[in-house]
Nucleic acid binder design. Structure first.
Lengths: 229, 229
DNA sequence: TAAAATTTTAAAGGGTTTTTTAAAAAAGTG
DNA sequence: CACTTTTTTAAAAAACCCTTTAAAATTTTA
């Protein structure tokens, strides 16, 4: 999995060192040497994480942080000097996710990167209704199980996510693009046909007759939807 | 689950910031700006946690702490200035559960809140349910012992915690991230694979055939869960 | 009705995730 | 401090799922 990290700092040497070291760990690193460049890059690119120095020439780190936050919830690690007001940085006003005081230990930075990315990845699984019931269908979101007519059906992760999304909004038609984005993630560049195949497997598992679907229906030329009522 | 937290501090700005930030995390926040107000509120309301500044105008934090303790075992986190006598605060006399020196990192506060609530929650389930029995399984939460088919099995600390968590919610699928967070703690920077290895050892100890697990099951692409029924 | 566009179906290779194993590191104990 | 136990890390092997591809079937358009 490709993880893109933007490093923003005006200390060229530090940036280069960090870049090299993090690339060794398999991260995809982009760099910016001042606030304007950082903001520009974040506008044109999606990152999984931003490492942001507080003291920058021109637009400072806090401002960059704010600007980024206006548009996205990307995790941000702040690099600060000792004695800065940490509460302010991490607090509501700026909303960084973590910070490190310079000079920092690169191992610690790496540990924090790991932890933050891990957290970011799990928060997408929202905790909503625990059981969705539609007719003979029962979707148990905690156990990730589906029961059709008392019979328990085993779905793979993608199949389950797909069904859950569709069934959460009966009647709403999703295009393949939307499904890819919601379930595979916005960074996914795969084929649209992939969705079809998953839909087919789902149908095979939960429909009585998979070629006469009753629940997961096709909107010709548009996409798929779950039967309403 | 609605978790009510009372924040007691005379620094209006800090209180407001904390309130906002913790509300973002889904906590239900109440505030008090001096000792009297705090005592009054705790008399009329039950809280799951109290965050209490040591230095308060009028009745100070320690006194508030004592007064609260007379009536309840609600967890208390103390906010102190550097150099305070920590032992005294945490000791029997006052009985706070944890403390943080100002200025503190809000992430750290959040981590401690989580940890304390977790402790409080597991202690209450202990009282309610000292033995969990599922089929041939008996989990003795007080003695931290597990019996499988009359045979007593020796589990290490982590193994036991893992089993207890999973078995307390049969059927609920936990991701590795969730397990790390719940058992290893919020600030853990280690590897996700650690969970797998512990699961494997657990299986070896409690399953008849560890490669044909009957109790601790894998949800492919998601995580692990304890068999339901 | 034929052609074009879109969806369904089927199958296989490729890739990811999990399991297993082993050894290193850390923590606990006397 | 040395020994034992537990926990973590690492990497190979196995299990499983996903994606791709392409042909068949269906629906729409002309």
């Amino acid at each position: 999995m490709d993880t893109k990290i933007l490093i923003v700092d005006d200390e060229t040497l530090l940036v280069k060192g960090l870049k090299y070291s993090l690339e060794q760990d398999g991260y995809n690193i982009d760099t910016a040497y001042n606030g304007n460049e950082a903001i520009e890059k974040t506008n044109n690119q999606k990152y999984n994480l931003i490492i942001l120095d507080l003291m920058l020439p021109g637009i400072d780190g806090l401002e960059v942080c704010q600007k980024v936050r206006e548009k996205s919830q990307v995790p941000i690690i702040m690099l600060t000097a000792k004695g800065e007001d940490i509460n302010k940085i991490l607090g509501l006003e700026y909303g960084a996710d973590d910070y490190l005081t310079k000079p920092f230990n690169i191992l610690e930075l790496k540990a924090r990167i790991k932890a933050i990315l891990r957290r970011a990845n799990t928060q997408s699984t929202k905790i909503g209704e625990q059981v969705i019931q539609i007719d003979n269908f029962k979707i148990n979101t905690l156990g990730r199980k589906v029961t059709v007519d008392t019979k328990e059906v085993n779905l793979t992760a993608k199949e389950f996510d797909l069904l859950l999304l569709l069934a959460s909004n009966p009647g709403k038609v999703y295009t393949r693009e939307q499904l890819l984005e919601k379930i595979w993630g916005y960074e996914y560049f795969g084929d649209l046909r992939t969705v079809d195949v998953h839909i087919r497997r789902l149908r095979e598992k939960i429909e009585k007759d998979s070629s006469q679907a009753e629940y997961i229906l096709t909107k010709w030329g548009v996409g798929y939807y779950f039967r309403k009522k």
